[in-house]
Amino acid sequence: MTEASTARVYGLHAAVVAVLFALNFLLPDYHHGLFARILVLATFAMGYNLLFGYAGLLSLGHAMFFAAGLYGSGLAITYLGFGVPAAFIAGLVCGALLALVVGLLALRTSGVAFMIVTMMFAQALLLTIVYFNQWTGGDQGLVLQQASRIVTIGNASVDLTVPTVRYVAALVLFAVVLFATLAIVRSRFGRVLVAIRENEERTRMLGYDTFANKLAAIVLSGVFCAAAGAAYALLFGYVGSNFASVQYSILPLLWVLAGGAATTLGPLIGTLFIYYVTDIASSYTSAWLLIVGVALILLVLFAPKGILGAVRKRWIRWLP
């Protein structure tokens, strides 16, 4: 609200981005690769958080937006010969359009019906991808050639397959979406979203078109998730139908719950935490689904506010 707190909040987020940039030079190979992936998936989680955490809409179908970006850019490269920037934009457009259509339909429902409808739409997209396996590669997926993942600007060319480039590109995406989220949740629009989450009827009686606001939230969320999907395709060169499966609708929910819903940095913390827990655990056991399951139950039972939610409640009240 005040100038001082604005500076403090933006300073904190800039510091987080700076630390992540420094890690580019410090992390050993294995963790360097893992982090690049986590940054992209955390972006996915941030998109999910905007809708679930702030607007209070629990979707069980967000894999479809990630997949829209993934396939939008992947197919554009493979079949239309798009360059990297154009393919990225194609992914965003796919995500935005899909979110608009899904939003217009699904927002006629609420609560449990909204969850099931979003899940069904995601399932329909998955089945579509499988049905057109001639083009999409079905379960096998498509591998994007290295040559198609090089950005040429004038004479310079940037090769997204080089680990450092990949890391920095992932970080840029992450930072853009992080600051965009921060700006949104501190804006008047963000305040309206939270009001809708807290009490939709009251918000309507203050003169807000709650449907339009929720629709805007879905589209923004869809675009962020699609950006993550498109980046995933371009940075890691693989497009596969398992990213459209129910599992990838559940994972962002898990990451956000773990890190803290409705906190800007929660999605990053949650993704990091869950990723490393599963990574460490999988060196002892192959039963990683068990860990996901137990984590979900423990979180809803004992830490419904997540890591940063608890931190905000106890120590740092000003955390956005």
Binding site: R191, V192, V194, A195, E198, N199, T203, L206, Y208
Partner: peptide, 16 residues
């Protein structure tokens, strides 16, 4: 809005 500050409650009206 029980979880929002009194200020935010009123600000929602004002900003509209």
């Amino acid at each position: 809005f029980a979880n929002l500050s009194a200020y935010d409650n009123v600000a929602l009206s004002v900003q509209r």
